[in-house]
């Protein structure tokens, strides 16, 4: 049949296939040498090696689909179907990455910082007691002026009972930590974003005499004393400049599960 003869006659020969395999192998070796520490190329090229690596893998990708998958010799429609899928896949990937990079970190923070009340909901509340009643139940409490915030450990679980607290910048905040646990001791430390584990690690080194907080740690905004089982502790401080901070328990090991966001507006 015409279909089959056309097929076999256009396929590469055994030697050509061996050559292709050698080329693929050689490219892989080049890629490896590019990033291998002892070859030192990694230092010379720096970040410019990334486009190089992407280009090399694209060459491998193309060789496999052209020769091993016969797209070079097969009907163009088959290639079109695959390339269409590949192009869509690339767009989906780029869209996902762009979406998240555009969020400047955390999509939730991004949304909260830019949230506007929905017009219809706002009209419903006009004429009521307050126009500021459109707080959703899971919106963190917002406060102006002197403010008291209570945070509690979640029983015997190594977690706080709230994942997010907030206050206005410059307001005087009194944070109270209640510890209902029968066994565990906890503290509450306000730290700059992303530093909770590093602060906790240094706190572990500082030891119980310092309430598990390294004295003079510049990442620490404020911290309570250690609250033993059944006890409570509090601290008063001025809310820092607007941004997202973290609160965390720095008792050794607790920082991995016992933390939340402190949002200053």
């Amino acid at each position: 049949m015409a279909h089959e003869t056309e097929h076999t006659s256009h396929h590469p020969s055994f030697n050509q296939y061996v050559l292709i395999a050698i080329v693929l192998f050689a490219i892989t070796i080049v890629e490896f040498v590019l990033i291998w520490d002892t070859a030192r190329i990694v230092d010379h090229l720096g970040p410019s090696k990334i486009p190089l690596l992407v280009a090399l893998s694209a060459v491998k990708f193309a060789i496999v689909i052209m020769y091993y998958m016969h797209l070079k010799f097969d009907n163009r429609l088959l290639g079109a179907v695959f390339i269409a899928g590949l192009a869509l896949a690339f767009l989906v990937g780029m869209a996902l990455i762009a979406l998240f990079v555009g969020f400047e970190g955390n999509p939730r923070d991004y949304a909260e910082a830019r949230a506007l009340p929905y017009a219809e909901h706002a009209e419903e509340t006009v004429g009521g007691e307050s126009t500021e009643t459109n707080h959703e139940t899971d919106t963190p409490p917002v406060a102006a002026g002197p403010v008291a915030i209570a945070v509690s450990a979640a029983g015997e679980t190594l977690a706080f009972d709230i994942s997010s607290i907030s206050a206005d910048s410059g307001s005087e905040v009194t944070l109270t930590l209640d510890n209902p646990s029968a066994n565990n001791a906890h503290n509450l430390v306000i730290v700059t974003a992303g530093t909770k584990d590093a602060v906790a690690a240094d706190g572990t080194a500082a030891g119980p005499a310092n309430d598990w907080v390294s004295p003079g740690d510049s990442r620490v905004i404020a911290h309570t004393a250690l609250a033993g089982p059944g006890a409570s502790a509090n601290v008063t401080f001025e809310a820092p400049s607007p941004g997202t901070y973290q609160f965390v328990c720095t008792f050794p090991g607790h920082n991995f599960t016992m933390f939340g966001d402190f949002i200053v507006k």
Binding site: L78, V81, F82, I83, A84, G85, L86, L88, A89, F90, V92, G93, M94, L96, I97, F100, V101
Partner: peptide
Amino acid sequence: MWVFLGSDCLFFASLIATYMV
């Protein structure tokens, strides 16, 4: 089969993009 492979590209692209995000 080629249609399936084209759509499988989307599957893996989503997982790869998630990793990169």
